[in-house]
Amino acid sequence: KLLSSIEQACDICRLKKLKCSKEKPKCAKCLKNNWECRYSPKTKRSPLTRAHLTEVESRLERLE
């Protein structure tokens, strides 16, 4: 599967780190437990900047 097509777990399953069936409108866990089942939009991760990478590398060197 391509990364862009990976389905996201519902908010509660993601928060509780449960295996989500990803069914809509309610996944199996939410249906069974009568929880409100919501699927928040995916958040875009910002790409690493060179400055951040350099900072992490220098912190790693100090720890070694």
Rank of each mutant, 00 (worst) to 15 (best):
L2W: 14
L3K: 03
L3N: 11
S4T: 10
S5C: 11
S5K: 08
I6W: 09
E7Y: 06
Q8N: 09
Q8L: 12
D11L: 05
D11N: 03
D11Q: 11
D11R: 05
I12G: 11
C13V: 07
R14D: 01
L15C: 13
K16M: 01
K16N: 08
K17W: 06
K17T: 03
K17I: 06
L18Q: 06
L18D: 01
K19P: 08
K19M: 01
K19H: 06
C20R: 03
C20T: 05
C20H: 00
S21N: 05
E23R: 08
E23K: 11
K24E: 15
K24Q: 14
K24W: 15
P25R: 02
K26T: 11
K26F: 15
K26P: 03
C27E: 03
K29F: 07
K29W: 00
C30K: 02
C30M: 07
C30I: 07
L31A: 14
K32D: 04
N33P: 00
N33V: 04
N34I: 11
N34W: 04
N34Y: 14
W35R: 13
E36H: 13
E36Y: 07
C37F: 06
R38Y: 14
R38S: 12
R38Q: 13
S40T: 08
P41T: 04
P41H: 06
P41G: 05
K42N: 10
T43C: 12
T43I: 14
K44L: 15
K44A: 15
R45L: 02
R45W: 01
R45H: 02
S46A: 03
L48Y: 12
L48N: 00
T49P: 00
T49E: 00
T49I: 05
A51T: 04
A51E: 04
A51I: 12
A51P: 04
H52K: 05
H52V: 00
H52T: 03
L53S: 01
L53K: 02
T54V: 05
T54R: 03
T54E: 09
T54G: 10
T54D: 09
V56S: 00
V56R: 03
S58E: 15
R59W: 01
R59P: 02
L60G: 05
L60R: 00
L60V: 14
L60P: 04
E61W: 14
E61A: 12
R62N: 07
L63F: 12
E64W: 06
E64F: 03
